[in-house]
Amino acid sequence: MATSTQTPVRFGIIGCADIARKLCRAIDLAPNAVLSAVASRSLEKAASFARANNCSTEVKIYGSYEGVIEDPTIDAIYLPLPTSLHVKWALKVAQSKKHLLMEKPVAMNVQKFDEIAKACEENGVQFMDGTMWVHHPRNAKMREFLDDTELFGQLKRIHTYFSFASGDDFLKNDIRVKPDLDGLGSLGDTGWYCIRAILWAADYELPKTVTALPGPVLNEAGVILSCGASLHWEDGKVATLHCSFLESLTMDITATGTKGTLHVHDFVIPFQENEASFSTGAKCFFNDLVTGWTPLPSEHTVITDLPQEVRMVREFSCLVGDIKNGAKPESKWPIISRKTQIILDAVKTSIEKDLTPVTVEW
């Protein structure tokens, strides 16, 4: 890990999507990063974004994506463009020897993902997708519980759920419901988080099969608005996920073992920025009169000095700093992203094939 004395990593942002506002702030708050440039397809839009986000007057403004990519002072690019544009611009970023932090879903399918990963590997640049919640310190504490064979036992079942109720304007005009922009819909958006949570709980072991659940909802253009799936492992583990643009805001993880259970109710975005909680039950059963539980499940709260998206930027910047000092890019992040993409592809394929099981292959 790079030291805190490293020269700050100089970021450029390509595209002024809403999520870029959050990363603009995160880069500003990260101790080892600095925002150096903002690019949009028009100079006016890039300048407006910089003003709205109180960017320093030293931040360069570009009216084309190529401008920031070709800027020799930029170390890394944050890329929040629509998924259909990821391959084109990610390849340009990697080929310019700039490190790549990009929004999820990474690609429309794993074949497109592999094009991006290959370009990053060949050019020696760090890749990381923008799944923020995995960088929260709560995750390390939850991992300790899942790995405790005395309290949690053997993992048997995982359930994840991420939905939010979008309005008519979103369902008609948002890029996430447009087949030519973010054509993976809720599966690529909320589903990506659910899949990542399942893989995280399973210590990133891929399942043997994936089967879409009955009742997927698609819009007139064929984009998924709501769907579910079940995942099955050779050792008997089972996971289910549900993702939707059509239901109340919910973001849950339940992981059940032979001895204990983990519950999280805000896994993607914590209820509060500076702390996050989870509950655990270990060896719980009924009391003698079956009027209550014993022992009671316990609540755990983890305080963080930096929001999860800032910790993500800090981690990414540390890796970039290490590479500047002669280290190789960290391979775990593209591997984790590829596994997520593989499961996403399998769910989509199962929906397209009338809910038939899809065998998962690396």
Results as ranks from 00 to 15, higher is better:
120 C>F: 01
125 V>M: 05
74 I>G: 06
126 Q>R: 00
101 L>I: 00
73 T>L: 05
91 L>C: 12
125 V>F: 00
122 E>D: 15
123 N>M: 07
114 D>I: 11
92 K>G: 07
81 L>D: 04
76 A>M: 04
71 D>L: 02
73 T>I: 11
99 H>Y: 08
110 V>L: 12
109 N>D: 11
85 L>E: 11
113 F>C: 04
75 D>R: 03
79 L>C: 12
103 E>F: 01
98 K>I: 02
126 Q>A: 06
113 F>V: 05
111 Q>P: 05
115 E>T: 06
124 G>H: 00
92 K>E: 01
87 V>G: 10
73 T>H: 14
73 T>W: 09
112 K>H: 14
106 V>E: 02
78 Y>M: 09
125 V>R: 05
98 K>G: 07
116 I>L: 12
117 A>P: 10
107 A>D: 01
114 D>T: 01
97 K>T: 08
108 M>A: 10
104 K>F: 13
119 A>M: 06
122 E>G: 04
81 L>C: 12
117 A>Q: 09
92 K>H: 14
111 Q>A: 15
101 L>D: 01
78 Y>R: 07
80 P>A: 11
88 K>V: 10
86 H>P: 01
84 S>C: 13
79 L>Q: 10
114 D>S: 11
100 L>F: 03
96 S>P: 02
88 K>P: 10
76 A>C: 03
112 K>I: 00
82 P>Q: 07
122 E>W: 03
94 A>D: 07
116 I>V: 12
96 S>M: 00
114 D>P: 07
96 S>Y: 09
75 D>V: 12
87 V>H: 11
83 T>A: 05
119 A>P: 09
72 P>F: 06
115 E>C: 14
72 P>R: 05
84 S>F: 08
113 F>I: 01
122 E>N: 11
123 N>T: 04
105 P>Y: 10
115 E>P: 09
110 V>D: 14
115 E>N: 14
125 V>D: 00
73 T>A: 08
100 L>P: 02
103 E>Q: 10
74 I>Q: 07
91 L>R: 13
93 V>Y: 02
110 V>C: 14
111 Q>S: 15
81 L>G: 07
75 D>A: 01
77 I>W: 03
118 K>P: 02
107 A>S: 13
76 A>Q: 09
109 N>C: 10
90 A>G: 15
89 W>P: 10
121 E>W: 05
81 L>H: 00
91 L>M: 13
94 A>M: 04
105 P>Q: 06
112 K>G: 09
121 E>V: 12
126 Q>K: 01
124 G>N: 05
110 V>P: 10
79 L>N: 14
84 S>Y: 02
73 T>N: 13
126 Q>D: 14
118 K>H: 12
81 L>Q: 11
101 L>E: 01
86 H>Q: 08
101 L>G: 08
98 K>S: 06
93 V>C: 11
77 I>E: 03
110 V>W: 09
93 V>F: 00
106 V>M: 12
86 H>S: 02
91 L>I: 07
